[in-house]
């Protein structure tokens, strides 16, 4: 278990080094995208003037509040990543993000795509919205707010030591969720026999 303090844009080399169980604190540009935003970004192909290369993609629908024309992050924990499972491979084909941040893990389609594009999936504690808001720092921009509404919009944040983020699916095909799943399946079978 190694601790890393990373800054965006994240290098390919560091991603290769990251292993399941490593801890990351992330600084730099992180943007949110849930189901609707994935669909919208795939439909449009890009956001003019917004380069996603090396950035963190965050599965999150935050609570935001506007004060004197300025947006503040109120609470911004991760959403269930599995909802994006079927969309993520196409997303990674198109957008060169290096880190996916979410909760609950993703499936075989994403795991394969992480390998193909040298990307890692990291977990942040679900429900820890106030703690996440602190780490995500400031709002840099927002896209699709009118079309998609607050939770589904693409919010761009300037994060500072956002974490702890646990590497739970690395770029070599190893998933901590698969490990846990095998163990809980064994435990279930044993419990049902008792």
């Amino acid at each position: 278990m190694t601790e890393y303090f990373l800054k965006t844009p994240i290098d390919e080399e560091i991603i290769t080094k990251l292993k399941v169980g490593d801890i990351i604190y992330l600084s730099g540009t992180v943007f949110t995208a849930r189901d609707e935003a994935h669909m919208e970004l795939l439909k449009h192909g890009d956001i003019p003037g917004f380069d996603m290369t090396g950035l963190g993609l965050y599965h999150c629908g935050p609570v935001m509040q506007q004060e004197n024309g300025k947006w503040n992050i109120i609470s911004a924990g991760p959403t269930t990543s599995f909802r994006m499972e079927t969309l993520e491979p196409a997303f990674l084909d198109k957008f060169k993000v290096k880190l996916i941040i979410g909760k609950g893990g993703m499936g075989p389609l994403t795991l394969e795509s992480l390998k193909k594009h040298n990307v890692v999936y990291v977990s942040f504690t679900g429900g820890a919205g106030a703690l996440a808001a602190k780490g995500l720092g400031k709002v840099k921009a927002v896209y699709y707010l009118e079309e998609l509404g607050m939770p589904e919009a693409v919010w761009v944040f300037e994060a500072k030591d956002f974490g702890p983020l646990i590497v739970s699916m690395d770029s070599k095909g190893h998933s901590l969720y698969d490990d846990v799943n095998s163990k809980t399946r064994e435990n279930l079978e044993r419990l049902l026999k008792e």
Binding site: V63, I74, S75, G77, G127, A130
Partner: peptide, 13 residues
């Protein structure tokens, strides 16, 4: 933190 700063615990309120 949520208590000290008066922020919602989770973004899914």
């Amino acid at each position: 933190l949520a208590h000290d700063e008066g922020l919602p615990l989770c973004q899914d309120t």
